[in-house]
């Protein structure tokens, strides 16, 4: 078990190094003066000099890379070019909102998707199955920011049931603020999770041991949940991981729609303002997320499937 965790952790290192190289090279590979490219045409010489100094652009390239890598790994992201706030503070302010949104959305998505998938599988090729299929077809097609905009217009602006923007203060207010953005993401992710649950469960229900369970007169609910769903957990774990990742990337446009703080809106706003230290930190942050989530999925396999533990 411990060995597995350590191997997976070591496996994640090349991914992080690659992202660091990508971010490092992208700033320097572009034609022209990197400071000028990053700051734009209107930048004053003072700003250009400050930028070069902050990003360490005056040192030799190899030295630049190592100090850059070290800074990123030790979470020393520098200061925002716009208002001088340390980038780490900006990240710390925004991070909880993105995590909150991703968690709540995934939870709601699971609560809708899994029962829907079970219901569709049990009623295969009947009305509920067709309904679930239609739902998933539309769920794949509707962009999250469009659904978010519609929900915002209907439930916040017209009906006034939900707040228009912001992240909320305190736990209760926070949940109140996160609900509509989370439902937006969950509605679409549940289409995927529902489809996956249906496929996985149908496959398991065709197995010999399920027939045996039925033959010995087990209760149908017991067959579906104990024998069926439990064994469908492995493909579902993969699906859940993919779903968390796509919820995370969907959080970027959704944060923008609901004018909600978070790493996504921080990154997008800093791109608009050409605030390069913040852009770098945001990109590296998302890479960290992806690596951590993939790691968590791998470990979840071990919990779900004892056979992997033995290998």
């Amino acid at each position: 078990m411990l060995r597995l965790i350590v191997t997976r952790l070591l496996d994640a290192i090349p991914t992080l190094v690659m992202v660091l190289i990508l971010v490092f090279v992208s700033l320097r590979i572009l034609p022209g003066d990197p400071a000028q490219v990053a700051l734009g045409e209107q930048a004053t010489p003072d700003q250009l000099n400050l930028f070069r100094e902050q990003m360490g652009l005056n040192a030799p390239l190899w030295q630049q890379f190592f100090s850059f890598g070290w800074n990123m790994l030790s979470l020393n992201f520098g200061k925002s070019l716009i208002n001088g706030t340390p980038v780490i503070d900006l990240l710390a302010q925004n991070l909880p909102y993105t995590i909150e949104l991703t968690l709540v959305a995934t939870l709601i998505g699971l609560c809708i998707g899994v029962p829907m998938g079970v219901f569709a599988a049990v009623n295969r090729n009947k009305a509920p199955d067709t309904g679930a299929r239609l739902y998933s077809l539309i769920g794949y097609a509707v962009p999250d920011f469009y659904l978010g905009a519609l929900l915002l217009i209907v439930f916040s602006l017209n009906l006034g049931w939900f707040p228009i923007n912001g992240g909320g203060d305190g736990f209760v207010d926070g949940i109140y603020h996160v609900l509509l953005p989370a439902i937006t993401l969950a509605a679409l992710k549940s289409a995927f999770l529902g489809r996956l649950t249906r496929t996985a469960l149908l496959e398991v229900l065709g197995k010999d041991y399920v027939r045996t369970a039925r033959a010995k007169g087990a209760d149908e609910n017991r067959v579906i949940y104990r024998h069926g769903l439990r064994n469908a957990l492995l493909p579902l774990t993969t699906g859940l991981g993919l779903s968390i990742l796509s919820t995370l990337s969907g959080s970027v446009p959704v944060e923008l729609v609901f004018n909600r703080p978070g790493i996504g809106s921080l990154l997008i706003n800093s791109i608009a303002q050409r605030d390069y230290p913040v852009i770098q930190a945001g990109v590296v942050m998302f890479a960290f997320f992806v690596v951590i989530i993939n790691l968590a999925i791998d470990l979840a396999y071990v919990l779900v499937d004892p056979r992997i533990r033995v290998k």
Partner: peptide, 15 residues
């Protein structure tokens, strides 16, 4: 390992 939107955002952020 990266969702395509996230990968695209990360590349677009620097390009």
């Amino acid at each position: 390992a990266f969702p395509e939107l996230l990968l695209a955002i990360m590349i677009a952020a620097v390009l």
